[in-house]
Simulated assay, not measured.
Amino acid sequence: MLAAIPHLPEHQLAAHAAAYAAAVVEKRRRLVGGLILLVALVWAAGWMGDVRPAVFVDNLGRFASYFGRLAHLDSGALVLSDPAEWFWGAKKWLRLIGETVLIAYLGTMLGGVGAFLLCFHAARNVARTRWSAFLARRFLEFCRTVPELVFALIFVVAWGLGPLPGVLALAIHTMGALGKLFAEVFENIDMKPVDGIVASGGNWVQAMRFGVLPQVTSNLASYALLRFEINVRGAAIMGFVGAGGIGQDLLEAVRKFYYSDVSAILVLILVTVALIDIATERLRHALIGRETRA
Rank of each mutant, 00 (worst) to 15 (best):
M1K: 10
M1H: 11
L2Q: 12
A4M: 05
P6Q: 03
H7P: 06
H11A: 15
Q12D: 01
Q12I: 10
Q12F: 08
A14R: 07
A17N: 15
A17Q: 14
A21R: 11
V24K: 14
V25K: 15
R29D: 13
I36N: 05
A44C: 13
A44G: 07
A44H: 11
G46C: 01
M48N: 06
D50S: 14
V55I: 14
V55T: 08
V57R: 05
S65H: 13
S65A: 13
R69E: 15
L70F: 06
L73M: 04
L73H: 03
L78D: 04
V79G: 04
D82G: 02
L94K: 10
R95G: 11
L96P: 00
I97A: 00
T100R: 05
L102M: 14
L102W: 02
A104N: 05
A104D: 06
L106P: 00
G107C: 02
G107W: 00
M109K: 06
G112Y: 07
L117P: 09
L118V: 05
R124V: 01
N125R: 06
V126F: 07
V126W: 06
A127Y: 00
R128Q: 14
R130L: 05
R130S: 10
L135A: 10
F139T: 13
V150H: 11
F151E: 02
A158S: 09
G162T: 02
L164P: 02
P165V: 07
I172C: 03
M175S: 04
L178K: 07
F182S: 04
E187H: 01
I189W: 03
M191C: 00
P193L: 04
G202P: 12
R209V: 15
G211S: 10
V212C: 06
T217L: 12
A221V: 04
S222C: 10
E229R: 03
E229I: 04
E229G: 10
N231G: 03
G234W: 02
A236F: 12
A236I: 09
F240K: 07
I246P: 07
L250A: 04
L251Y: 12
R255V: 13
F257P: 11
I269P: 00
L270N: 09
A274Y: 14
L283P: 06
R284Y: 04
L287H: 03
I288N: 02
A294Y: 08
